[in-house]
Amino acid sequence: MTPPSAPTPMRRIASMLYRRPNFYLLLLLTPPLLWFGIIYIGSLLSLLWQGFYTFDDFTMTVSTDLTLQNFVNLFQPANYDIILRTLGMAIAVTLFSALLAFPVAYYMARCCSERMKAVFYIGVMLPMWASYIVKVYAWTLLLSKDGVLYWFASLLHLDGVVDALLQLPGIGGKTLSTSNLGRFLVFTYIWLPFMILPIQAVLERLPPSVLQASADLGATPRQTLLHVILPLAVPGVAAGSIFTFSLTLGDYIVPQLVGPPGYFLGSMVYAQQGAIGNMPMAAAFTLVPIVLIAVYLSIVKRMGAFDAL
């Protein structure tokens, strides 16, 4: 087995790359680095930079004079309302999703045969990936007057209950599709799968011996759930909440289509750059969800969310 007589050019390149692993690494990384560095990070930084530009309210034009005024304007009371409205919805959606997701995840992780688990897994994956806009559209069909939900309500003689719910301050409204309740349902529906999967993953990793040990030491199933399973599921809930929280926070399509009028963070940014044409203010506004999400991430990181992703 003597070495081949003359190495081909391709083999010579291969050997050259083999001898210079750092150069090879650089070669692999260059295309993605250029793409993300220039296109994405470049755009992001230039957007934030625009937050320092000046917008002239009278001429509706942007000048490149640098100012902090846009960031100061964020602290107007009207903007507090927007932030609180969005934040409140994000938190409510997160809590309710966790409540709905837990039994599904628990059932998937611990009570199913392999086959049933696969059914549930696909059953959660498909709605998760099914078109976002179609899902929102489906809910406009469901919530509309004469729509499916109203029909079911009257079928079960629950019209009174629906009306009573809609009378409640804060979540009520004229109809389901213009109420906060409706918007809340849509958000919960859309982001629920993102909560189920991380919880399921965490619960699946729980060794059965831990639960057996708890039972062996005299705990009732309820006590085991409360003192063993729930604490151990916290990282999964925290990981899932990253999605439910930040996706709700940044959304502007759902608030536009379902629920009462009034800006959300996303729709405010959208309106600023689009209808109003105040790009500097829009840029400054994008900082709000970024900061809120950063704060949120730093909280859930302590709960072990990143290990459960």
């Binding site: 087995m1 003597t2 070495p3 291969a14 050997s15 083999y18 001898r19």
Partner: peptide
């Protein structure tokens, strides 16, 4: 300095 594929 030889890569593995050039060793006997």
């Amino acid at each position: 300095g030889l890569p593995p594929y050039q060793r006997d």
